[in-house]
Design a protein around this nucleic acid. Structure first.
Lengths: 217, 217
DNA sequence: AAAAATTTTTAGACTCGTCTAAATTTTTAT
DNA sequence: ATAAAAATTTAGACGAGTCTAAAAATTTTT
């Protein structure tokens, strides 16, 4: 069995590897896990001993197959719990992450399996992130950032890149929810902000900052 | 905030105080928490410093008001999660305890409140144990042990004193489930075993050991 | 290509919760 | 009432995970 903390490191390494190009560094891990680089170094040595990561001193880190399997298990649990919290308990998509950070560490194969069934085998969490399969496969999705969509195209909001409550609450306020249709009317040449029409109704101005963090198809 | 471990000690002290007459001792805590007496001593000093227990060396231990409030909070979470696992996910009453031991430590007032609402504000957990109120009151129930019921009386199974999976599975096998009606037909003078009729159908012999652990009204 | 800056690792220490072994207090038995 | 037994606490240690400060390696700058 692996500790709480080890699971968090593996999960974080997975996220950083997926997000960044290049190696996952000690510093980036320290930042993500809100610890110090020294602590990360210690833990990397430990994870390497357990064969969960490939690690050469000063050279960054990569998950082994076993490490990735574990990371995806944790991510699967996290996202399934998020669906439960949002769909069954009525929490907002800006609230579910924090609770799921704790729930993801409850270790019972049976529990997550039954929960998955109870929820009807959801494919995506409340932020549009795909849920890894029980076998440990991360579904591939190819979405585009709203900031890349050309004028005149109509797309649908499928997910977010930024998961902070502040960002999600901002989307709630402006009505940019998952699944809503967005017609790109204009792109401002100066600041790259986007003028969009939502659900064939109201028109909205979306900053480039926001558009870069909205995933559409 | 209090640690996982502290919560477990408080909960255990509460249970032992309710179950036993007299003081809760270091040894009984050590047995219940599957640790050694020395570890318990250390923790008691710590809990006393935090004013969660009344503690004089060599003299046993009692929860303070604040300690009891916390213990009941944990027990409430535990039992609500048990209801969820049994009613919504379809786990047996012999399976829910272990998972609830982990879930009870998830700290979000909001979560337990919403879960409670989702479950329709249940009054009892799957073993018939009452669920403490949000304000931290343990409902009083006065049940009788089946072993105390006089011949000819018909009663209903309301709960269990023994919570081990083995005991619960035994009850499942013999059909002695929560809510079933039990008519006491005879009591064996020698071994105090009880002959009962269940739901006006089949007749069953129940050992005194089992009868002493079955709560009826 | 050497110096400076940055990143990473090591060394040593701390907290939490646990342990064993020894000391102390309380209880029980004679 | 005192000795023996049992329960409890203290002392000292350990592993996990963290920290700060210092050392070492790597990268960037000049």
């Amino acid at each position: 069995m692996h500790s709480f903390t080890e699971e968090n490191y593996l999960k974080t390494i997975y996220y950083l590897a997926a997000r960044q190009e290049g190696e996952v560094t000690t510093n980036s891990l320290a930042e993500m896990t809100a610890t110090k680089a020294a602590s990360v170094s210690d833990m990397l040595r430990k994870l390497a001993e357990k064969q969960l990561i490939h690690y050469k001193k000063y050279q960054g880190v990569r998950l082994t197959e076993e490490g990735e399997r574990l990371a995806l298990k944790v991510i699967r649990r996290h996202r399934i719990w998020e669906v439960f919290l949002a769909e069954k308990l009525g929490f907002g998509w800006d609230e579910v992450h924090e609770m799921a950070e704790e729930l993801e560490h409850i270790r019972s194969e049976d529990l997550v399996q039954k929960l998955d069934a109870f929820l009807g085998y959801p494919q995506f969490d409340p932020h549009g992130d795909p849920i890894p399969s029980p076998a440990g496969q991360m579904p591939t999705v190819e979405y585009t950032k709203l900031s890349e969509v050309t004028i005149g195209e109509e797309v649908q909001v499928m997910g977010v890149l930024e998961h902070s409550p502040e960002f999600l609450q901002h989307l709630d306020k402006t009505g940019l929810n998952l699944g809503c249709r967005v017609l790109v009317q204009d792109v401002n040449a100066f600041d790259k902000s986007v003028s969009v029409q939502i659900n064939h109704e109201k028109t909205l101005f979306v900053s480039n900052e926001v558009a870069r963090n909205l995933l559409v198809n």
